[in-house]
Structures are given as structure tokens and as C-alpha cells.
Design a protein around this nucleic acid. Sequence first.
DNA 1: CAGTCTATATCGTGATCCGATATACCGTCA
DNA 2: TGACGGTATATCGGATCACGATATAGACTG
Lengths: 124, 124
Amino acid sequence: MLEQMAGRSKAPESTAAAALGSFGRYAGPATLILSSLAGGSKHGYALTKDVESMAGVRLAPGTLYEALARLEGQGLIEALASEDRRRPYRLTAAGAAALRAHLDAQRQVADEGLRRLDAGLAPT
Amino acid sequence: MLEQMAGRSKAPESTAAAALGSFGRYAGPATLILSSLAGGSKHGYALTKDVESMAGVRLAPGTLYEALARLEGQGLIEALASEDRRRPYRLTAAGAAALRAHLDAQRQVADEGLRRLDAGLAPT
DNA sequence: CAGTCTATATCGTGATCCGATATACCGTCA
DNA sequence: TGACGGTATATCGGATCACGATATAGACTG
């Protein structure tokens, strides 16, 4: 039924709503990656698995590693000393703050949308 | 501080989580547009204004009209008889269902992310 | 030793977002 | 009435981004 959609935003204000669309265009993989890292440092592959169980989303390898590179470049995550062949990443303070702002804004929009859906059971 | 991120998903399961990334790649403008239309039929420009006050996001004209065309093609919204020079759109039943599933999934992920942020006040 | 899972990386293609630009109607205020 | 700003839609080009395919390789299991 639903096979295509996208959701992001700009951030003009200073409150939580200002965070929508903060990461890249409309934030997607990045939100999932940061949310996963909020639960502890992980390397890419483990991240994929965690995101999949957390959100039911399978991040393609290209999406994953490109997003990681971007996020690191933005200072939202940082690479840790690689153990084996794994390259673990950690959420930075800036990343945590950005994630919180983004999730707050996202939740507000989701709540408003659901409120409208429940209210307008009659189309206008 | 936060200048780029993206967040979307695939939809493998059958529950609410399956809706993440249902519209287009990672849903952004589409989520905002559908959420706005959930509050009543509107034409493009009014939609822009509503989204801006609702989410603090200013949709670029290109983004707006291209997203509207896509959503109509997917049957998630439908065009109404144009009055003046305005082209109002209405949320379809399929659009409402898709939006609800997407917002439910989005809220779940947001809640989990915030939970992790609040829990792990010590980085791992 | 074949197969599967873990693990990272890159490339090309397509999707999509955005700003600029164009057009045009409308109301208002000088 | 004529300049200006707000309303309203549309399209194009460039840039960003997501995705699947592909490549490589170590580890474990049978």
C-alpha cells in the first residue's frame, strides 16, 4: 500500500522543532544510526543488526558506510581505535544533542499528525 | 551544531515498524505534507504555510510540487476540483492509513532513541 | 573444503531535495 | 495607476543522498 515517502525539514527556529532536517536533507539512516549509538558504541555491522531489530529497517551497506563517513565529518560520531577488523563508533556530545533535538522535533510532528488523524475522522 | 542527517528505513515486517521508509526513500516532505492534509484539505501554498507553523520547516517549491505529484501518483492524496488558480488536495483513505503506520513507527523509534539517550548518560 | 556469517568498502544508478527562475493574479497604499 | 508585496503554481539544473551490486576477506561450522 505504501511504497514511497520521504520526510525531513529545515531548521529555522531555535527550539526543538528547529532540529527537523538537521542531518543531511531529511534525516533517515542518520537518525537510526545515531539512535543505535545512543545505546552504546558499535561498529558498522553490529549497527545494522541493531537498527534492524529496533526499527525493522535493513540499511544497505552503501547507505551505512556513507552515512557513517558523513556523520563523522560532522562531528556527530567519532571512530574509536579499531580492534579486529571492526571500526567501532561512538556518539559525541554534539551528536547526542543533535539527536535529542531531532527526536524531540520528530515526536512533536508525529504527535500532531496522529492527533489530526484521530480528530478528523471525517475528511474535509 | 547539527547540520546534516538523514533517517529512513525499509519495511520488511508487517507491524507499525514496517512503515518506516514507506514513502519515497526516507520520508520527509511527504510525512509533513500528509500530516498537514490530515488536518483538512489544502492547496500547495497553504500547505507550505501550515507545515512551516507546524514543524518550523519551509518546503522549497520544487520539493513541494514534486512531492505532491508523487503522492498523488501513489494514491495517497487526490486532487480536488480546482477553484481559483488553487489546486487543493485531499488525503485518501490509503494515505491516512500509510501516514498512521509511518507516524506510529517513527514515534516508536524516537521513543527508543530518547530512552537510550536518557539511560546512557555515561558513554559506552 | 564448501558454505555461511561477519565485516568493511566502493561504484554507478536512480531518487529526491533544493534554490533559482518564471509567470500571474490579487490587494493595498501612495 | 502604478509600484509593491503576498498569494499561487510550475519547471529546470545542480547537488545530495540511498540503494543494490560487487569486491574482498577473516572466522566458524560441518
